[in-house]
Design a protein around this nucleic acid. Structure first.
Lengths: 330, 330
DNA sequence: CTGAAAGCGCTTACAG
DNA sequence: CTGAAAGCGCTTACAG
């Protein structure tokens, strides 16, 4: 356009030493006048790399970002992005389909989240030949995978409550779960299995506990707990929530009902969000290494992108954090 | 590759009616065998659109995602993305430069956050001719802009404390701020100006209040408050924190110090995060419409992308939320 | 030290 | 209903 060939222009921008300083300066000056700047997409297409990793999400962005669990998970992947100079593309389902979202994401690889049931995403990713790592999913051969010992964690906290002497237990679960998930897979099913394990040790089954479900927010947990406590049956002496958020809501509801926690009813959570240590009463809960999970997922993905792929699988442990919100039944 | 021309393949994928059903099926079948799938980048380059909006961030991803303020802001932009079918690209600085990050983001437009001082980003975006909207920045002609009445909000809460009778005030600010920001612009400077306004009404100046600074987290607020209370000077009767998070930390510290809130020391926040209503004591604070801000930014950006750009400017109001954490001085 | 050419993969007028 | 061609913008061997 202004004196030289396209290659010269390209060199001026990317390969200073392959061109004379004089022409380089001239090119850059003209580019500045014209407001020219190398097109990002053209560059990426040629380079075959985007310097971006995608997170394939199971729900809309608004729901995901409202959930502290995901905020922390993304923090972990974010740490790796920061370190490696990647951007992070948040990819929600398109028209309610995570499958449909895949072709619209210009990324070097995906972290696939919350895929309790595989509706073809894994196959699609495989055929595209794009690297990916599965989180909290079922084991899948041929792809890196990071999971948490949900079963063990849930077993620990249930056992703890049982050893404290509680027998009238309520489980506050995240739900309702999609019908298609009835096959009992994914983290939630594993947590329920863990509870079943602990129950079995004292000769009980899941049928002996009350099961309430709340979608996800603190307000949901509040509402579910209120209805849980208002039935004709004798109220539970302990509420085992399957997420910290839900546990917060349970405590809120109990307080408003004039029920002392843990004096009259014990409450436990699952996750150990940062707030749980500040929460009053300090929340007894199961810690799962959420940030580590996110970080590890991104680390595995970047290895896969670089072709160092060994399809690693990683199982992360949980630990019971005993604080103040659970004690012996009155 | 398997019988037909490239155009036919393209039609098979995108334009079913321009091709016979028979050949279409054949093409799709072969594509399936081969694992062929249209390349995302090629498609975007041709289409000239990415269906993605970028958020240009002032800090690394890990820091941003740790901050509930940003989580809520992103929730607002996420709502719009969900509605319009866009993905959201989180773009942190590259090698500490937000400017350098721009060329690596394949997006249709940017939401530019936390740009207290313009280091050339606006000019770069202008020359690229890529749409963008500024948030919490100084007014900039020729670009849509969304801001919040930080000054008014801060004035309101300071005035409230003053009217309660407090004179020994401490301001817990977010900082230290970058030296380059000494020009006093951006939200923080506006909040300080609002406090100055209120102080002036009772014949005081900023020099009459203690100024403490904490970087960002609850733990930071905790630490800053501890040192604030441990000096030789008589302790403040009220702490005006410039963010809710910092206020939480202040209350934590006060509690650990055996100081009653609000009995002995009043504490106020700024933001009104969801947690502030659950927090004990319920936090008196300034509500700013964070989610709305994010939503509006994304709405403006999408209008600009579609060429309906009228360079709208929007100033969002704040409101004082009076709850329990502040009362008359003892 | 510089230019002409090929190719990254796609889509869409334009002919046939 | 289908194919040959041009073009979205870029970069990198390859000649000169």
């Amino acid at each position: 356009m202004a004196g030289v060939s396209r290659s010269a222009v390209s060199f001026a921008f990317n390969n200073p030493q392959r061109i004379s300083t004089a022409t380089r300066e001239r090119i850059l000056a003209v580019a500045d006048q014209l407001g020219y700047t190398p097109n990002t997409l053209g560059r990426m297409l040629q380079a075959g790399t985007t310097n971006s990793i995608g997170v394939l999400l199971p729900q809309g962005l608004a729901q995901i970002l409202e959930n502290p669990y995901y905020a922390r998970f993304l923090m972990g992947t974010g740490q790796v992005c920061d370190r490696e100079g990647y951007t992070l593309l948040l990819t929600p389902p398109l028209q309610d389909s995570v499958l449909k979202a895949i072709p619209y994401a210009a990324v070097d690889g995906f972290v696939v989240c919350g895929l309790e049931i595989d509706r073809g995403e894994v196959a699609e990713l495989d055929r595209r030949g794009i690297p990916f790592v599965l989180i909290d999913s079922d084991r899948h051969e041929g792809a890196p995978h990071v999971e948490v010992d949900d079963r063990g964690g849930a077993r620990d906290v249930a056992r703890y409550l049982l050893e404290l002497g509680h027998r009238r237990l309520a489980v506050l679960s995240i739900g309702p779960r999609p019908a298609a998930d009835a096959g009992h897979r994914g983290p939630l099913a594993r947590r329920l299995a863990g509870i079943t394990d602990a129950l079995a040790e004292v000769g009980m089954t899941l049928d002996d506990v009350r099961l309430a479900e709340a979608p996800v927010t603190r307000a949901d947990g509040y509402k579910a707990t209120k209805t849980l406590m208002s039935g004709p049956e004798p109220p539970p002496t302990a509420i085992l929530a399957l997420s910290d958020i839900l546990a917060y809501g349970a405590v809120d509801a109990l307080r408003d009902l004039g029920v002392d926690v843990p004096g009259e009813v014990s409450v436990t959570g699952f996750d150990d969000l940062a707030e749980s240590a500040w929460f009053r009463p300090r929340l007894t809960t199961v810690r799962q290494p959420i940030v580590t999970k996110g970080r590890m997922a991104a680390d595995f993905l970047i290895s896969a992108i670089r072709g160092e792929d060994q399809h690693p699988h990683q199982m992360l442990g949980t630990s019971l954090i005993v604080r103040e919100s659970a004690t012996n039944p009155a």
